[in-house]
Design a protein around this nucleic acid. Structure first.
Lengths: 344, 344
DNA sequence: CTGAAAGCGCTTACAG
DNA sequence: CTGAAAGCGCTTACAG
């Protein structure tokens, strides 16, 4: 039903080239010397028959799947395509296929154990909370290669993690609001509950305030949900409650968008009345009005690093226990900077 | 290196349950009756040993990979995550794994034949131009199940295609500009060369003009590239050239964004001076200023349909040769409608 | 309903 | 450098 019946096998190639299947295999894998003239005959036979070795047979015989599994939460973010591209490129380059499974975050364990694991991959890249702690512990106990993306491992588990300089980026951003634009009543819009990126950004926010002798005001910390709609409703609530603020550090660019929209339709001018900044530098950030000041993370690089560390683990080498990719301030005008000063 | 050495096999389960491996296999697959009490013992053994059957062995023995391959162009669009979700959900539900490969559109053939094909999948979902015509012909000649997404098959090949009502959506949108807002000098911003979605949208545009007795003006058709930057530079060029227009139908929402940005910084008011509409209804469309009138496509559904048709082919059933998913006008204010009339 | 056995298409020691 | 052969871990006729 799936293989064409006449689909050639290694035996067909061997027969045609007049060699044993072992020799064909050696030509295919290139890891054992083969006399050039023989190799050429084999190559020719392969081409003529349009032969492609059955993956399953190779996997079974070699005990290596040459496949990396990627577990993602169902709700894909904006960075998702570029991280995926990074992972796919790096995986292919290292000789691995990529098997993807999206996880209903409500049932991380049940779904994940079945779909991707040691039975069909050599290692797993796990994105933010898409595998629960018990499952991670189980996999680690069995020395199965795993790398975490944007999530530190649960207590006691030694699993490499790839993430970005959230705290540092956030701190620099808030420093900028305070030092350059003299804002002191800065709202922070949190991401979803339990989202580590958001937690670190919040720490950066708090440390910046502290470093400038501004005492934290808990009324200024509210839910943004990494989501335009939630941020929009939170900001209207703040306005309704008469909370006094002169800037908003939205947890991500989407919530910045929601905040800006709400403020503008309530008649506030940005950045004059309220400065608004985000995090991520999604493609549309530069097109918002005003263009959004934010923090850029090297998303594609994140995926590449994840594969790099995972491949080390698969090869039995040591991996970095934490890889922290640098973030970078992107100054536009929503913070109060003038177009002249803008980084292109 | 990849399987833990002690990782249990079907033989371990059989021994523990005191049955043959054939019986374990039958319990696993549930396609042959097994006495309930025996089945329970087997299930218990499976659970105790934490046994998960090796995929490669099943594939090799059964001659079915139970895997669907997805070929994507490297440049992921906005709809990408939701289409992927649709595909993944539907694939899993139908009992298939999902193997993904992104294709450098410069070399569609070379990369694609190696990565995904009959040697490791039961069928392929091919996204816009990620496999070249010769390769498609080769696959079809071998009766390998394929479904195309947003791309009609090359001449003479009978490959099912899933796409959306591009022409109809575009036509309704332009009808709206003409009939409701009395615009007659409407610019169309094309997508990338050879992009079928764009071609169909252009046809809808032209047919709407024709239906209203407006003769096409080729000066009003220009490159938008499905891209903010390209659209922005095209629109400034139009302005510089003194081209006279009262509306822009951008090929997609991103180019609408670029157009709006450019017009506004040149001092034009939207929609009063120029109405701007897009296509796709990306998440940020409602947050643009003004909120963008556009056309919505059921992206997740597109992925689901693709899997559905592909599974039919894999099972040897007949598939719909074309599945056209409906699009829907989303009226906001960038076309000139007042907020009151806005669809929520 | 169940088991023994062949076979899926490769890789890889082991000899030579 | 090359071949014969065992074996990877399953599924599936074939008997019984």
């Amino acid at each position: 039903m799936s293989f064409s019946p006449q689909s050639p096998t290694i035996a067909d190639v061997a027969k045609r080239a007049g060699v044993s299947i072992a020799t064909v295999s050696r030509v295919l894998n290139g890891n054992t010397p083969v006399v050039p003239s023989t190799a050429e005959r084999v190559q020719a036979a392969i081409k003529e028959l349009n032969f492609v070795p059955r993956s399953a047979a190779r996997v079974l015989a070699s005990r290596r799947t040459s496949t990396i599994g990627l577990l993602l939460p169902e709700i894909g973010g904006w960075f998702f395509p570029s991280i995926l591209r990074g992972i796919e490129l790096a995986a292919r380059q290292a000789g691995y296929d990529l098997l993807i499974h999206t996880v209903d975050v409500e049932y991380p364990l049940k779904t994940s154990r079945r779909a991707l694991g040691m039975h069909n991959t050599d290692g797993l890249i796990v994105f933010t909370n898409s595998v629960d702690d018990d499952e991670l512990a189980y996999l680690e106990r069995n020395h199965f290669p795993i790398v975490l993306l944007h999530q530190t491992p649960p207590e006691g588990l030694n699993i490499p993690v790839i993430t970005i300089e959230n705290k540092d980026g956030a701190q620099k951003l808030v420093d900028h609001l305070i030092e350059v634009h003299d804002r002191r009543r800065i709202v922070f819009l949190r991401g979803p509950e339990g989202h580590e990126d958001s937690d670190w950004r919040e720490r950066g926010y708090r440390e910046s305030l502290a470093a400038h002798g501004i005492s934290a005001n808990e009324n200024l910390v509210a839910r943004g949900g990494f989501d335009e709609t939630e941020a929009a409703s939170t900001v209207s609530q703040l306005l309704k409650n008469g909370v006094d603020f002169d800037a908003i550090f939205a947890g991500d660019d989407l919530s910045a968008l929601g905040a800006i929209t709400t403020l503008q339709s309530a008649g506030y001018r940005i950045p004059d009345d309220v400065a608004v900044v985000g995090f991520d530098d999604i493609p549309l950030a530069r097109f918002m009005s005003p263009p959004l000041t934010t923090v850029r993370a090297p998303t594609e690089q994140t995926g590449i690093e994840a594969v790099k560390q995972l491949v080390r683990l698969i090869r039995g080498e040591a991996a970095e226990s934490i890889t922290l990719l640098p973030t970078k301030l992107v100054i536009r005008t929503s913070c109060g900077c003038k177009p002249k000063e803008v980084v292109p």
